[in-house]
């Protein structure tokens, strides 16, 4: 079941998935990581991603949808090249999380779960990301940036625009 003839994924990712389904006591355990890794490559969890993952694991597509819709990091619509996730939960809020969020909105000209017209950035307000002691913090494509000020955010955005940003995927 695992090796798929016409995979939509890159050869590396396909090979990784071939292996991933075999390492657990049950294939299904690979589902959540697969969805996340597929999203990292494709940009979002598309219908084609769902179909292939369902086939790889041997699940109904409905099952895959049930699971994927549960997890807030998984999305079924494309996002920007760099997804900016701003934490506004309590510790960040106390140290300017909302200010950072406002700043991002103005700077990028987009709102929550929106993407800039050039497709470079998308923005999301998120719950606590586990950086409370270094608040306010954001994540861009999984990379943490903490102890932020609006000025530091500007520098960051420029860095990413210049292609200098780190991508931890």
């Amino acid at each position: 079941m695992s090796e798929i003839a016409n995979t939509i994924f890159s050869p590396e990712l396909a090979a990784r998935f071939d292996k991933l389904v075999t390492i657990y006591p049950l294939r299904r355990s690979a589902l959540v990581p697969m969805l996340l890794y597929a999203q990292d490559e494709v940009g979002y969890v598309s219908d084609a991603v769902i179909a292939e993952i369902a086939e790889r694991i041997g699940l109904l597509e409905l099952d895959v949808r049930n699971v994927l819709s549960y997890y807030s990091m998984l999305r079924t619509k494309p996002a920007g090249k760099y997804n900016v996730q701003v934490c506004t939960n309590i510790s960040c809020m106390l140290r300017g999380g909302y200010e950072i969020l406002d700043h991002c909105k103005h700077k990028l000209g987009i709102g929550h779960k929106e993407t800039t017209s050039d497709g470079v950035f998308s923005l999301e307000e998120v719950e606590c990301i586990g950086a409370c002691c270094w608040a306010p913090a954001i994540q861009i494509n999984y990379d943490f940036h903490d102890d932020l000020t609006p000025e530091k955010v500007d520098v960051l955005f420029q860095m990413y625009r210049d292609g200098q940003g780190k991508d931890v995927k």
Binding site: L26, R27, R28, G58, L59, L60, E61, L62, D63
Partner: peptide
């Protein structure tokens, strides 16, 4: 196709 495949017994 695709929507009503069989649920494997194992899961």
């Amino acid at each position: 196709t695709g929507l009503t495949q069989i649920q494997p017994a194992a899961d």
